[in-house]
Every structure is written in structure tokens, then in C-alpha cells.
Design a protein around this nucleic acid. Sequence first.
DNA 1: CAGGTTTGATAAAACGGTTTCTCACGACTC
DNA 2: GAGTCGTGAGAAACCGTTTTATCAAACCTG
Lengths: 346, 346
Amino acid sequence: MVKAERIRIYDVARVAGVSVATASKALNDTGRMTEATRQRVKQTAASLGFRPNAMARALTQHRSFTVGLLTNDTYGRFTLPVMAGISEALVDEGVSVFLCGIEDDAALARLHVDAMLDKQVDGIIATGKRIDRRLPVDLSGLPVPVVYAFTEGPDDAVTLVSDDAQGAREATEWLLGKGRQRLVHITGPQSFASVTARARAFSAAAGAGAAILYGTWSEAWGHEAVAQFWSSGAPRPDAIFCGNDQIARGVVDALRERGVAVPEDVSVIGFDNWEIVAAATRPPLTTVDMNLKELGREAGRLILELAEGKPVEPGVRKLPCKLVVRQSCGGDAIAPSDKGEAPQEI
Amino acid sequence: MVKAERIRIYDVARVAGVSVATASKALNDTGRMTEATRQRVKQTAASLGFRPNAMARALTQHRSFTVGLLTNDTYGRFTLPVMAGISEALVDEGVSVFLCGIEDDAALARLHVDAMLDKQVDGIIATGKRIDRRLPVDLSGLPVPVVYAFTEGPDDAVTLVSDDAQGAREATEWLLGKGRQRLVHITGPQSFASVTARARAFSAAAGAGAAILYGTWSEAWGHEAVAQFWSSGAPRPDAIFCGNDQIARGVVDALRERGVAVPEDVSVIGFDNWEIVAAATRPPLTTVDMNLKELGREAGRLILELAEGKPVEPGVRKLPCKLVVRQSCGGDAIAPSDKGEAPQEI
DNA sequence: CAGGTTTGATAAAACGGTTTCTCACGACTC
DNA sequence: GAGTCGTGAGAAACCGTTTTATCAAACCTG
């Protein structure tokens, strides 16, 4: 850690033989001057390795090139892809992201929001683990724009969510397209908006007669649901669409234990495309990907526009899900375009 | 989003009937003045809802109350707990964290580091997904302090890692303490330093005769290893210590499929305490927790000390792991003190 | 060639704080 | 009662940029 004195614009100006004002304008491509002068300043800056002090710049421009990401999904499989997308959209604009994990603690949330405002963030993106719950803090009336991504915000806010209904519809239609006839939907608690949205879409596509079983978001529930079905006298399904990948994994495991072949006898589709679950299932799960990274990218773009003062239409934007085809629903996958995250190490 | 004019210290000074200089000193508990004046200023500030502009403050103090977290573990089950710990240690000091995910992209890393330096971060914490690999960027010679957490740094750096050997030893001794006699270690690729450290500690505790099987970090490998063992004529183990929770889950599933009872016939212990795997395994996994959150907390404390100019002894600090007892290794758990993360929702 | 217009560049004033230096004043000393 | 000292408070400089206002010189125009 060598304390190399940082070059200031003052140094650039001196070496280039111009005033600080001229240097500033040269480097920002503003103001008027001969092209020669501008180039000379730029050259000197480059050769000196000048990098402007963002703090000083922020002070005059009222723009910190910094945004805050607030989330209650601390151990988050939802926040991380969203964060990656945001970062990807913003890094090229020189914008950095403060990540603030607030459990469900209103005081902690307040603390983080205040810290962010003190640091003059250009905007705040709120995200969470549930599309139909609010963060434990009121973000309206803040002096900076706010975008809600994968969490509920006020009615007049800019909000981004994934399109549960569309995702469920595509999955269901895919199963029907495979010639499956007796579809069942095994999903999470009915108290989740996502659950009812997906269930409705499933019913619409599969027919009102298709059974829907509500439970919890766990592998155990997947097991249990299969047990219920197989022990009852009811006609057995040839396709099961699950509310998330964990349930799907439980279902697949339970079927295997019963000697039911997946996908030959029963096709299974999950939801979330949570690699670590979907890829470890035997056979690997076909599943609905919520495109959270793209959702993050879009959130980044929107917050940037708002920060620049551009008008953005408020309202809820639904982003489409994408079916990721693996082996659990019957082989002849259309080129899966499976994103294939880097293999998990250690 | 109401643009409420932000209160400046100038406003506080005017209302309190003092100069800006006095106001500043009053609020920062510096300088000399009557207690009455100080209190009056503080009261006015509070009633006006004054919050100092962190940018302006940073400019003079050369302290931004901001640190950067650089990681290549983008979808990270390692980074997240570390991040949570860091944040926890720093939020009370008013320090915010820039999270920068660099895949394994040197150019991207450079971009983020430069952005962070421009923003005058007080320090950088580097973290990753492997204890024995470096990030694709050289962080030495930076004008700010650096702490390495769960990733390799230069020899003269401040580095924090979990104590693999101690964790493996505790797991092994726990199994021996349960009266188990024929121990086996099924683990990941030998190219990982963690693998060899854990394996050596296992050998030392279990005896040189105890078998060690190296493979990949997957459930599939856990399955396969069991298959190998059970099909060979070799004497069957009564305890299996696994290199991570995914392998352990594969092992447990394979044993169940063979009708081998866990933990009655064979005890199984995993490594990582990755809730989502450990808790979903039937029976739930006893596993070694690397205490990554505490590691993060410590990293936060250290970077803070360095930022404040306090001396910190360079070198590698090993933080102890902790055995989290669940049902997979034989019941009479000492109060598990299982951290029990909030149940996963959707 | 006087008078108006560009043009290129600069000095100085922000931005919102902190810090150093100076100073007036009452209390103490001798 | 003159000289010293400690104290509370304020003026001004500073941090590193951007931006506005200003200005001299060159350039037209009729």
C-alpha cells in the first residue's frame, strides 16, 4: 500500500499549461476551445494517470454515480441474480452499487436508507424475496427516485416483476404439447400472490378439472404430495407442474422411489431454475426461469433514467419468464439455451 | 419523490445563531465552546432534521465511510454470509459497502477497482469462492488498505480464512466419540487446498488406514462413491465424513436407496452447513459450519482499523469452524445451537 | 477602419462541509 | 491598574471539482 499522491486536475492543468477551468472543460468535452488544446489536455491527463475525485465531482454535479440496493433477501437466491443484472447495466456508466441487507428489521432498514441518502445516492432499488410483500420501510417521499424490483411498492411507483402467469402458462402448454393428458400442479402456500397467479394460469391452460395441491415450498411437501396422490384411488397424473424447484425435486425423488419413470411415465417441470437444485435432480429438471438478471438490468436502466431526470411511466412492468428445458419432461428439447452457470466449486 | 430541500449546516448555524464553524464543531464534539452553545446547536440540528452531506465531509476528511467488496463468487453462497458479516460490523460505524461482482474477468475487475478508488473508498475487502485462488487482479500497491477474506492474497497481506483442519478434526473426533470405528472420507478434487487440509486432519484423527476418496463437489459423486464402496468387497464403513454438503447428500441418498439406515448403521457428516442442502437431506445433515459471517465481521473490523491508520499485523488468520449437529450422525446431539436461518420462502 | 461578434481561455464563485488561525473579552497575577 | 492568560466564538482557507461570468484578441461587416 504505497501512498502515491493522487493527481489532481490542478496538476494536469499546470503541466498542460492551461487553467483548471480549461482542463475541466477539455476533459468533459464541454466548453469551447481549439481541438489542439483539448487534445493536449487529454494527453497530459492520460499520461499523468489522472482520475477525477468522484466526491468533489459529486459535490458540484449533485450526482454521485452511486445507487443503493435494498433487500430483505439476505441469503438470497433472488437478490443475487438481480444484483448481477443491475451491476451489469450500471458498471459501464461508472455507477457503483451499495448493497444493503436489511433482514426484516425496520430500524436497520432506516439506518441503511439514511446512510445511503447521506452519501447522496442517485437512486434506490428495492428488492426482496416475495413479489407481494413490502419492505419494512417506507420509501416514498424520498429525495431520490426509487424502483421496486421483485418486491411490492406503492401503486404510483415504478415496479418490475416477473410474469408468473405467462411462465406457468408456457410450462403447462409445453406439457400439453408433449401429449400429456392428466396434469397436476403441486405448489406452495396459497397466501403467495405468485402461487395463485401460477395456479390460475395452470387451470386456464390445463382445464378446470386439473388438480392443484397447495403446500409449502419444500422438498418434503413434494414427497408428501406424491404420496397422497399415489395412495389415493385417484387416477394418476402423467405430468406434474411444480411451484418451485425444491418441490419438483421432492416430487421427482418420490416418483423414483415408487419406480415411476421420469420423464417416461410422468413429466415434471419446476419453477425458478435454481441451478443447484435443478441440475442436481435426477434427471435434471426442466424449469421456468424468471429471468431475474434481466429484471435487474432493466431496474438498473430505469433507475439511471430517473436519476438523469428523464420521465419514466409509473406502473407495474411484467417481464417474461423463459422455459429452460432439461430432461425431466421428455427428451427432445429445443436447444435448451440453458444458461449453464459456472459449475459450483467447493 | 418530493424534493424537500436538504438542510445544510449553514441553515443550522443561522437558526442557532452561531457561525458555521461553531456549528460544525458543536456537532462533531470538537473545538471549544460552552456546553450551552453546543447543546443549542445540537438541538437545532435535530429539530431541523439536519444530516451532513457525506460527500462534502469526505472531501475534507479524506475519509468516505465507504468500503468496496470485490468477489468472483457472483452467485455466491460464500460471498453472501461474508457480506452479511461485513455489513453488520460496519453499519454502526456509518460505513456502507460497494458490492462488486467480477466473474473471473480481469478487465471487469480493473473497472470496478478503478471506480471504487475514484469514489475514495476507505478500503477494499477481497473475497472469493476458493481459499487457494487469487482474484484476477493485483490489489497490491493500491492507495487504500486491502483485506483478503476467503481468498488468497500476497504473503504480506492481511488474510482471513476458515480453519479447515480444525473443522475436519472436530468432525472426525465427533464420529470417533460416537464409537464409530471404520471411518471414510469422501471429498472433492485433490487440487483444492481445502481438500488436502481436511483430508490430512481426517487421517491424523481417524488413523492412516482410513480410506479417502477424491472426486468432484457433486451429489453425483457422493452417489458414485457409495456405489464403489458397496460393490467392492471392502469392509463397509460405519461413518462417512464428506467434503461438502452436496456430496453428503448424495451419500445419504445412496445409502437410503441401499436400505442402509442413517444414522443407525452409518453416521454421515457434511461440510459447509449450506442450509438449503443440509436441511433438505433426509435425515438432516450434521455438518461443519465455516462461520463465514463471523469471518466477514472480522474482515470488517480489520479494514476499519486499517482505514483509521491503526497498525494491523499482516499474515493469515484462521478462524475456527463449528460443528452443527443434526440427525445424520446419531441422535443425542448436544444442544445444536443450529442457527436456523429463516425458513426459505418461495 | 470603427464597431459589433465570435472565439478561446481564465478568474472566481460555487458545492457543503472541516480545520486552522485570529481575535475580543473577562479573569488572574503582581 | 497594566500585563498575561485562558476561553468562546468567528473569519477565512481548504478539500477537488464544475460552472458562470468576464475578458482580450481575432474576426467580420459595411
